Amino acid sequence: MIVDTIATLLGGVLLLRFWMQAVRVRPPSSVAQFTFQLSDWLVRPLRRVVPGVGGYDWASLIGAFLIVLLASSVLFISGQPVEVVLLKSLQRFLQWILYGFMALLIIEAIFSWVNPHAPLAPFVRALNEPLLRPIRKVVPLVGSLDLSLLVALILLQIAQVLVGMIIVLR
């Protein structure tokens, strides 16, 4: 449980670091300081091997996968073949990504209800914008309600179910 918690926290920070740079969002200084201090020990050495290409921080993404692979190896090593550990790692990695997107959407919903002008609200909105923009083109406003957050959460839950089937289909 401790290994899984530490791996999830570190993997989440690495995925957040990748996503912030992928969508070109400048984080508030507190978020940036937390994210970079917690992940620099892994990202900096990886950048020597895996440079950023196309404006993406591939070292952060690969670092997150290495963390999930290491955690899965520790948690599921009990006589499992390598391909099962790799498949389980891929499944957990995709689940982390989907849960991260769900968490960002829920945080945005909470900000919109509680304090839409909170200092972190524009940052979270900017992180969610690439997910919500295509949905907003299809889902119209209902009165003054934007249901794109709800639709995105439902689609992410469907994706979560499909990712959960990776091991089952094997």
Rank of each mutant, 00 (worst) to 15 (best):
D4M: 15
D4T: 15
T5F: 13
T5H: 14
T5Y: 12
I6F: 13
A7N: 08
L9D: 10
L9W: 14
L9M: 15
L10R: 09
L10C: 10
G11K: 02
G12S: 05
V13M: 15
V13E: 09
L14M: 11
L14E: 01
L15T: 07
L15K: 07
L16W: 06
R17P: 04
R17D: 06
F18M: 09
F18W: 13
W19F: 07
M20T: 09
Q21T: 11
Q21N: 12
V23R: 09
V23N: 07
R24D: 07
R26T: 15
R26I: 11
R26F: 01
P27G: 07
P28K: 04
P28W: 01
P28E: 04
S29F: 11
S30L: 12
A32P: 02
Q33S: 13
Q33L: 11
F34H: 09
F36L: 15
S39A: 11
S39T: 13
D40G: 01
W41D: 06
W41R: 08
V43M: 02
R44H: 10
P45Y: 00
L46W: 00
L46K: 05
R48A: 08
R48E: 08
V49G: 06
V50L: 13
V50P: 02
G52I: 02
G52K: 06
V53F: 11
V53E: 05
V53D: 02
G55C: 04
G55T: 04
W58D: 04
A59L: 02
A59C: 01
S60W: 00
S60I: 00
L61Q: 02
L61G: 05
G63Q: 03
A64K: 04
A64L: 01
L66G: 04
I67S: 01
I67H: 01
V68E: 03
L69N: 03
L69A: 11
L69S: 07
L70Y: 08
L70F: 15
L70W: 11
A71D: 03
V74N: 09
V74C: 10
L75K: 15
L75A: 13
I77E: 09
S78E: 11
S78D: 12
S78T: 14
G79C: 09
G79V: 08
V82K: 11
V82S: 11
V82T: 15
E83N: 15
E83G: 11
L87S: 12
K88N: 10
S89I: 03
S89A: 14
S89E: 01
S89R: 03
S89F: 01
L90H: 06
Q91T: 10
R92W: 06
L94Q: 00
Q95R: 15
W96M: 12
L98F: 06
L98W: 02
Y99M: 13
G100P: 10
G100T: 10
F101L: 10
M102R: 14
M102W: 07
M102V: 13
A103P: 09
A103E: 04
A103C: 10
A103L: 15
I106L: 12
I107T: 14
E108K: 07
I110C: 05
F111I: 03
F111A: 07
S112K: 13
V114S: 06
N115A: 08
P116V: 08
H117N: 15
H117C: 07
A118W: 04
A118M: 09
L120M: 09
A121H: 08
F123D: 00
V124Q: 01
R125S: 13
A126H: 05
A126E: 06
A126T: 05
A126F: 00
A126Y: 02
N128S: 09
E129Y: 10
P130Q: 07
P130E: 02
